[in-house]
Structures are given as C-alpha cells and as structure tokens.
Write a protein that binds this DNA or RNA. Sequence first.
DNA 1: GTCTATAGTAAGATAGAC
DNA 2: GTCTATCTTACTATAGAC
Lengths: 187, 187
Amino acid sequence: MGRQATIDSEKLIQALINVFRNAGYEATSLGMLEKATGLKKASLYHRFPRGKEQMAQEVITAVDTWMKDNIIATLRSDAPPAERIESLKHSLKKLYSNGKQACILNTLSSPWGSNGLFSKEIKSMLLAFTDSLAGVVSDAGYDKKESCIRAERVIMLLQGSLVVSRGIGSQRPFRDLLNRLDVELLN
Amino acid sequence: MGRQATIDSEKLIQALINVFRNAGYEATSLGMLEKATGLKKASLYHRFPRGKEQMAQEVITAVDTWMKDNIIATLRSDAPPAERIESLKHSLKKLYSNGKQACILNTLSSPWGSNGLFSKEIKSMLLAFTDSLAGVVSDAGYDKKESCIRAERVIMLLQGSLVVSRGIGSQRPFRDLLNRLDVELLN
DNA sequence: GTCTATAGTAAGATAGAC
DNA sequence: GTCTATCTTACTATAGAC
C-alpha cells in the first residue's frame, strides 16, 4: 500500500461543494479550493486530472446522488403524504443549513442559451424534484394538473426563499417557508 | 467641444447591465464588457476610472433608480390595487425579458457574511419592493400582517420562477406566475 | 499522495499617441 | 474620447522531488 490520503474523498468532495455553491463556478479559484480542502494545487490535480472543471463535475454528480438518495427517494416512498413532507422539511433544513447556504442549482446555472457545463444535470434535478413532489400532492387526493402546479410553486418558493434570505441577510424567509410547507402543498 | 462619444451613457450602462446580470460580478471580464459596449478597455477606464468595480456599482445604481421610478412608484400610486398589479406585470415582463433574463439581485449577491460589494443596495431594493407590494395588498383590504406575508411570498415566487426558468430552459414558469400574479396577491 | 517550484495564460489596470 | 501597447498580477496547469 502507498501513502495514506490526508483527507478522505467524502470530506474532500463536501469541501469542494461548499466552495462551488457559495461562489459559483467562475468565481471559484484553485486558491479557494486549496484553503477549503487543505490540499495544494498539485495534489488537487493528482485527484482531479482535468482540474477545476472535473471538480465541479464531480461536485454536481455528488449533489445529484445525494438528492436522489435522500429527497427523491423519500418523496416516492409509501409513507403517508404528511410524513413524507415532514421528512422533506428536515432534508431541506440540512441541505441549506437552515437558509444560510445558497442552492448550487442556482449558483452553478448559466445564462440562457449558453450551453453551460452543468445545464443538463441542473435541469434533470429540478424536474425530478418537481415530479416526485407532485406525486406526494397527488397521493393526498389532488388531481394531476393541480398537483404539478402546487409542486412547481413550492420549488419556486424554495429557490426564491434562498435568494431573498441571502439578499436581506436573514434566515427568516427560508425558515418561514419550511414551517408553511405542508400548507402550501396540501391545503 | 471635444470629440463625441461613440456610445451614449444610456446605451452604455444598459450594455453593462446585461453582462453583469447574466454572468455575475466575478465571471464578468473586461473582455466581455469590451464586446458588449464596443469600447476598448482603455476607453472604459476613461469613463469609469476605478474599473470593473465602478462599472458594477453604477450598474446597481442604475437598476436601483429604474426600480424606484418604475416598479416602486407605480405600486405606491393611488390607482386601484388591481390596476397597480396589472402595471407591475408589464414592468416585470419587460425587466426580465419575459423570463429570459436573470435577476441582477440574485446574480450579484454574495455569500452569507462576506460583506459583498452590493449587499446594502440589494437588501434595500428587496425590502422596498416587498414593502410597496404589501401596501397594494393592504389597500385591497387585507390586514397588515397578511399583506406582508403575501407580498414576500410573491417576491419569492418571482425570484424562484426566474431560477427555475433558467434552470429548465423554459420561460413557462415565469410566464405562468405573471398570469397568476393577481390571484397570488389578492386571492 | 503530497509537496515546492515554475511555466503559461488571461485578467485588471495604465501610459501615451492621436 | 478612443485607441494600441505595455505592465503587473492572479490564476490555471505541469514538472519533478520526496
């Protein structure tokens, strides 16, 4: 066996996620990634030979996996709708540090018609989230069309609450939304 | 009189706005600004001696003025609430090119606790927008607390619809929200 | 697997001619 | 007021020692 890694890939990818989602792709420098991971540039290139672009790609992939394993899977479980929503609340609270962290789907998204590096993954995650959430509303007795409207509205409220929370420097909008989640969906 | 400017400051600032709001501050390069304005670096420095930072500052100021003169002033007029909302609809449609353009309050905002360059202005604009919108709801007969909740909710829906529209590459979420604006505010 | 050192490139910013 | 040319710095990326 060769030398041990000074940071396991789990913690490593988590450090990378935190930089990219707060700064966005272009604003993220290797210097920031060095500081966040405790690894020097050359070491980062050893693990990610294609550099910054590869790091961002693996970050997006890790987020996608986390979303599927946690958010989506729970929303598609066979628990009662109210329970699934309660579970979603806790996942979102954790994911966004109760409103202090931006959403990476927002900060890594690119301008219209620019074929951004992560456009495909971002679109796919937003649609999967909306679709699985609509399923919960549908299971609670609403028809398909109304379920889709409510699900998409809650996704917009979620993204908007993070934008507003960051903009005014208060976690309140995000926290308030979480407390109203069930009402917004099932009322 | 000296030589004439090849681009008047009105068009110039508009070109700068379009770059900054689509790319964000860090990702915006002088090269992009050269292309968008048709002016060379040195000419941009002639008009904005403190460079990129000053350009972004004047961009934010211009947006702030536009918001006050259009959105806020209209929302605070003495027209019937339904008319003011209808007017808001058209302002937003124009401001965001019917959902194709991101909101500069989102793309220029900085991570939590980072004392971003534009934090003060962004917060002030979000609060003024929310407050004036709450006034409309209040004039329609709702009590103060409920008016604030509805106003903030619509601001979040607006920001969220722009995030989702960009994320999935469709103007539909933004357009749908505009069509439901009056319902969301006045029920 | 991690590091120091360095090459190469792009960005922000300035000087001076016209 | 705008330009070309240049300076300086910061960043991405690589080479090679340990």
